[in-house]
Simulated scan of single mutants.
Amino acid sequence: MDGMGLTDKAKEITDTALLKAGELSEVAREKAPGYLDRAADLAVKATDVAATRVDRVTGGRFHDKIEDVTAKVGASLDRPRPTDAPTVVIVEPDEQKNQN
């Protein structure tokens, strides 16, 4: 070995992995709202198409019930998303050593 013990090497690898995980979590946090909005838009469209087809197949007998369910689905997908997501704390390797 090059003077570094197995425990030290494991700690170095862990520190590097923690830093990378912090970076990736920031990227995910930035991109997630766009994906959620896109998924909600697609779900509303799919619900509308399904409701229209079911209404047509049933000859409009359940039109009011189908409209109620469609409205509830739309409302649940349109509700505001929480913006107070937990804060990600990135611990730098040097800070982590000082904490121990």
Results as ranks from 00 to 15, higher is better:
M1C: 01
D2M: 09
D2W: 08
G5F: 02
K11W: 05
E12D: 01
E12T: 01
T16D: 01
A17F: 06
L18N: 15
K20P: 00
G22Q: 04
G22C: 11
L24S: 10
S25D: 05
S25Q: 09
E26N: 13
E26P: 06
V27C: 13
A28R: 13
R29Y: 10
P33I: 06
P33C: 02
D37F: 02
R38S: 14
R38E: 13
L42E: 14
A43F: 00
D48C: 09
A50C: 11
T52L: 10
R53M: 14
R53C: 10
V54R: 01
R56V: 07
T58L: 14
T58H: 13
T58F: 12
G60D: 14
R61E: 11
F62A: 07
H63L: 13
D64W: 00
K65Q: 10
E67M: 10
T70C: 09
K72W: 07
S76W: 12
S76D: 15
L77N: 04
R79T: 12
R81Y: 02
P82A: 10
D84C: 09
T87Q: 12
V88T: 03
I90N: 07
V91D: 03
E92H: 04
E92T: 09
E92M: 03
Q96F: 09
Q96E: 02
K97T: 01
Q99H: 04
